[in-house]
Simulated scan of single mutants.
Amino acid sequence: MNNPSAPSSRTGGLPARVGVLGGGRMGAGIAHAFLVKGADVVVIERDEASAQAGRERVASSAAKSIERDPHSGNLDEMVSRLKTSVDYADFGDRELVVEAVPEDWALKVAALRKVEEQLVPGAVLASNTSSLSVSGLAEELERPQDFLGLHFFNPVPASTLIEVVIGKQTRPDLVEQTRSWVQGLGKTAVVVNDAPGFASSRLGVAIALEAMRMVEEGVASAKDIDNAMVLGYKHPTGPLRTTDIVGLDVRLGIAEYLHETLGERFAPPPILRDKVARGELGRKTGKGFFDWS
């Protein structure tokens, strides 16, 4: 332990000291969201090169937001409150740490245990998992009462939603504390009890899988299916374009988990498996259901 006393949060606002494990797209977005609101943020990565890349990712995201809204902050001041590191001990004085590593059970468990070893009693540990059991992850920890899910949405700075997932052992007062934090970020909390896929992933994947089956069956093109949802149901982005943005490999992993836990209605269609096998993972590879090149 780096600090013998429990941290104290800002009354009615955000924690002053926040940690993020993982500086990828989601982790950088989460760090950015807290920096904009005045928090001191530490991002931990696996090696020095990744830590530097994470810092550049956060700084770039902050610069773009300030370019869009010059009143949102000063870039130099904002970045001065950001630290990137490879040392988990730097989480020792954090009031909240959000884990944002890939959706792999063993990887998340190992990462969460390493973070928890550094936290003082009362500090909150959260996972940005989009589908894995929060209660199950909590069972792997020493202090499950201080753990919950905080499911941010991509792109984090622009998204107005955070899904707060309550595990079976999450202490009741943490729910309202987390609501206050979400409000402090300028976002809206949707509170759900732990269940496979929570609310957002379960519904989003169900629609996306059906859209994939429609493409597979030749019902309509990917573009027309998406337009039907955007224009007819006012979705900001269609289910197939959203899948490309999230990553087809990520969607496949979630679908496989939901298939295992909830049954055949979440069985991944062959078109999804085939595209992942070919490396057509969406925007990050230049091709998915759409051409991003």
Score class of each variant (00 low, 15 high):
2 N>A: 13
2 N>D: 02
8 S>G: 00
9 S>N: 10
9 S>T: 08
9 S>F: 03
11 T>F: 09
12 G>V: 01
12 G>K: 01
16 A>F: 00
16 A>W: 00
17 R>T: 02
19 G>M: 02
28 A>D: 00
29 G>I: 06
31 A>V: 11
34 F>M: 03
34 F>Y: 14
36 V>A: 12
37 K>Q: 15
40 D>K: 11
40 D>N: 13
40 D>L: 08
41 V>T: 10
42 V>E: 04
44 I>V: 15
44 I>H: 11
51 A>D: 10
52 Q>H: 13
57 R>T: 12
57 R>M: 09
59 A>G: 09
59 A>H: 12
62 A>P: 06
63 A>R: 14
63 A>V: 06
64 K>E: 12
65 S>N: 06
68 R>W: 08
70 P>I: 02
75 L>A: 11
75 L>K: 09
77 E>H: 06
78 M>A: 13
84 T>C: 15
86 V>L: 05
89 A>Y: 04
90 D>S: 10
91 F>T: 13
92 G>W: 06
95 E>G: 15
101 V>Q: 11
105 W>M: 14
105 W>L: 15
107 L>A: 15
107 L>H: 13
114 K>V: 05
114 K>M: 10
118 Q>M: 12
119 L>P: 10
126 A>W: 10
130 S>V: 03
133 S>I: 05
133 S>P: 06
134 V>W: 06
136 G>H: 04
137 L>T: 04
138 A>Y: 08
143 R>N: 08
143 R>Y: 05
144 P>L: 01
144 P>E: 05
145 Q>A: 13
145 Q>T: 10
145 Q>E: 14
145 Q>C: 01
153 F>V: 01
153 F>Y: 08
154 N>H: 11
156 V>Q: 02
158 A>I: 08
160 T>Y: 05
161 L>V: 14
162 I>G: 00
162 I>W: 01
167 G>M: 01
171 R>N: 06
172 P>A: 03
172 P>T: 01
173 D>P: 01
173 D>W: 09
178 T>D: 10
180 S>C: 13
180 S>E: 15
180 S>T: 15
187 K>W: 00
188 T>G: 00
189 A>M: 00
189 A>S: 11
193 N>P: 04
195 A>M: 10
198 F>E: 02
199 A>F: 09
200 S>Y: 02
202 R>C: 07
208 A>L: 08
211 A>I: 02
213 R>V: 06
213 R>G: 09
214 M>Q: 14
215 V>L: 07
216 E>A: 02
217 E>C: 00
218 G>E: 07
221 S>D: 06
222 A>G: 08
222 A>V: 04
222 A>R: 01
226 D>Q: 05
231 L>Y: 12
234 K>R: 12
236 P>Q: 03
237 T>E: 03
239 P>F: 05
242 T>Y: 01
243 T>S: 15
248 L>I: 09
249 D>I: 06
249 D>R: 02
250 V>C: 09
254 I>T: 08
255 A>H: 08
257 Y>M: 12
258 L>C: 08
259 H>E: 13
263 G>F: 13
267 A>L: 14
268 P>F: 03
270 P>S: 14
271 I>P: 10
272 L>H: 07
273 R>M: 13
273 R>N: 08
274 D>H: 12
275 K>S: 10
276 V>P: 09
277 A>L: 05
278 R>P: 02
278 R>L: 14
280 E>I: 02
283 R>S: 11
286 G>S: 13
288 G>Y: 05
289 F>N: 01
293 S>A: 14
